[in-house]
């Protein structure tokens, strides 16, 4: 591997970090890339710099297999089986692929939130697991961008939380922690590229709700 990382512009990464669900199973992901992705995560914005994020890196094939089976069940519940698909969530081929092959991802990173116990003074409640969970999402976004920057693909999936209890038991994650999401990581079978989004004008107001933006 080259001593210096190839450069990619921030905006290029932001605009082309697509959800990639079809990963190459034959091409491994280097340790230094896994580390770079996690480190990018730890650079994210977070309240009071509590850094409630933890990362469980799963490479063991037997463990991945079990996770993959649970993921398959969870995905089937979200998408519906092929012969009776969920009309409210039309599955694309990537989602169906991940349903069947999640366990074969070269590496799976679980982003886990730890609640913060250190602040229970008077009315001030400690940060509960649900809050800790969404506080970790900026880290997840950074990880997705970093993966893209390294030529890797990933996607933010939380369907595995239908089996949160089982996954926690398998990985030894403490009860009080919250699984934020599962990030399967590998080289894409296809390509990165732009996403479809409603334009800014359609989701922005000026000064007050319902007032058209002046762009």
């Amino acid at each position: 591997m080259a001593a210096s990382r190839p450069e990619i512009g921030l905006f290029e990464a932001i605009y082309t970090a697509r959800a990639i669900r079809k990963l190459r199973h034959d091409k491994p992901v280097s340790e230094s890339d896994v580390r770079a992705i996690i480190e990018a995560g730890t650079q994210a914005t977070n309240g009071a710099n509590r850094q409630l994020w933890r990362f469980a890196v799963v490479r063991d094939p037997a463990t991945k297999n079990r996770i993959g089976e649970w993921y398959r069940q969870a995905a089937l519940r979200v998408l519906g089986p092929d012969d009776n698909p969920n009309p409210n969530h039309i599955a694309n081929s990537g989602e169906r692929y991940l349903q069947e092959h999640a366990g074969e991802s070269p590496v799976i990173i679980f982003v886990v939130a730890t609640p913060n116990y250190g602040q229970a003074v008077g009315e001030w409640k400690p940060v509960d697991a649900a809050s800790a969970g969404y506080m970790c999402l900026p880290a997840v976004q950074n990880m997705l961008l970093a993966a893209r920057g390294l030529g890797l693909g990933s996607n933010l999936t939380s369907a595995i939380n239908m089996y949160e209890k089982e996954v926690k038991e398998l990985l030894g994650i403490p009860d009080e922690c919250k699984i934020v999401c599962m990030l399967p990581i590998g080289y894409p079978q296809g390509k990165h590229g732009p996403k479809t989004r409603k334009p800014v004008e359609e989701v922005t107001y000026s000064e007050r709700w319902n007032q058209a933006p002046r762009f």
Binding site: I38, T42, Q51, W53, R54, F55, V57, L171, G172
Partner: peptide
């Protein structure tokens, strides 16, 4: 916190 302090391999 450095990566080493917040990352586990395979099991917590």
């Amino acid at each position: 916190l450095p990566v080493e302090e917040v990352t586990y391999d395979d099991t917590w």
